[in-house]
């Protein structure tokens, strides 16, 4: 069996689990089952779910915030200030949410089955010019920030102006945006760190959720041994991803020094105010919007909180 896998950009920390998965699956099946990973050749990133639904390829990665209406349920993981602190916690909450029947039904509309997450640390912003360290300075800032993070910035008067990750550098370079919110690996991979004068070290407004999904029909057509090889490799792939990302984070301070990027610390009072303005109202609005569509929103949010509590025990 040969599967095509649609991801985008270039190989980076964000795609390491997919690369590892391809290696493991091929090893375990003696080359009977292979994954061909294509970086952008098969689909535009915003349309990876469409491609899965059509059956154009069998596996794909996408981010929930690129198209809220395509995947309303998993946007719970993109709510600002959820309080997820580590990548391990990120994996735990994502797994719990992905296992929820309402979420699976949501993705089933696209003939998609959730395979694994792409855990990412908190999205902090880079910018040029004077550092923006207060909520006041966020006013009218054009920030590339998708999903709930974008909403959080909007709540303090910024204007989310988003392009997909592959276009972020151009947007920053040409002045479409002042600042870009990314996880560390993406600031590196998409070059935004090279344009930056400063990076917020502790803003931690939230993160983006980017699952890897498979086409359900293709998954069902796998032989038992192939399916076992696929499912059985997920955990190890995620472990590899986390190791790799950990190594990247441990070098992050060196990267900042090397690129001459200033680390901006935001005061506790400012952070507290940001949370008050952004966290509760956005969460409540999300819950009422989603409930109106018949999605068990409160239940999903509680699931995240409970899982987080369990992980920390």
């Amino acid at each position: 069996t040969e599967w095509n896998v649609s991801v985008w950009g270039k190989r980076r920390a964000f795609t390491e689990h997919v690369e590892r998965l391809a290696e493991l699956v091929s090893e375990k099946t003696n080359g009977e089952f292979t994954l061909n990973i294509s970086y952008g050749g098969l689909s535009k990133n915003k349309e990876n779910l469409d491609g899965i639904s059509i059956g154009a390829f069998e596996m794909a990665q996408f981010c929930a915030g690129y198209h809220r209406d395509k995947n309303p349920t998993i946007t719970v993981l993109e709510l600002p200030f959820l309080g997820v602190n580590t990548l391990d916690e990120e994996v735990a909450v994502a797994n719990a949410v992905y296992a929820h029947p309402a979420v699976q039904a949501d993705l089933a509309r696209w003939n998609a089955k959730l395979l694994m997450t792409s855990p990412m640390p908190q999205y902090n912003i880079v910018g040029t010019g004077d550092p923006r360290a207060t909520l006041e300075s966020f006013k009218d800032m054009r920030v590339r920030a998708t999903g709930g993070i974008g909403k959080a910035f909007a709540a303090v008067g910024a204007v989310p102006t988003s392009v997909t990750a592959t276009e972020a550098y151009n947007a920053m370079e040409s002045g479409v945006v002042d600042t870009v919110a990314f996880a560390q690996h993406a600031h590196l991979a998409f070059g935004t760190i090279n344009r930056a004068d400063w990076w917020t070290a502790n803003l931690n407004p939230g993160t983006v959720n980017c699952p890897v999904v498979v086409n359900s029909d293709a998954y069902d057509m796998l032989s038992d041994s192939e399916r076992e090889a696929l499912d059985g490799s997920v955990e190890e792939s995620i472990a590899h991803y986390l190791d790799n990302y950990g190594a990247l984070l441990s070098k992050w301070d060196d990267v900042l020094t090397e690129k001459g990027v200033q680390k901006v610390e935001i005061s506790e009072e400012q952070l507290a105010e940001f949370r008050t303005v952004a966290a509760d109202p956005i969460r409540e609005a999300w819950i009422s919007d989603m409930s109106a569509q018949g999605i068990p929103a409160q239940e999903l949010y509680d699931l995240v909180m409970d899982t987080l509590a369990d992980t920390r025990k």
Binding site: S53, G65, H67, D69, G150
Partner: peptide
């Protein structure tokens, strides 16, 4: 392609929305 972005049951009939202002 249009059909996949359209849903009579959804608000604004939308099953696919733009990034910033939906």
């Amino acid at each position: 392609h249009f059909g996949r972005s359209f849903d009579f049951a959804a608000p604004l009939w939308s099953r696919d929305s733009s990034i910033d202002i939906s």
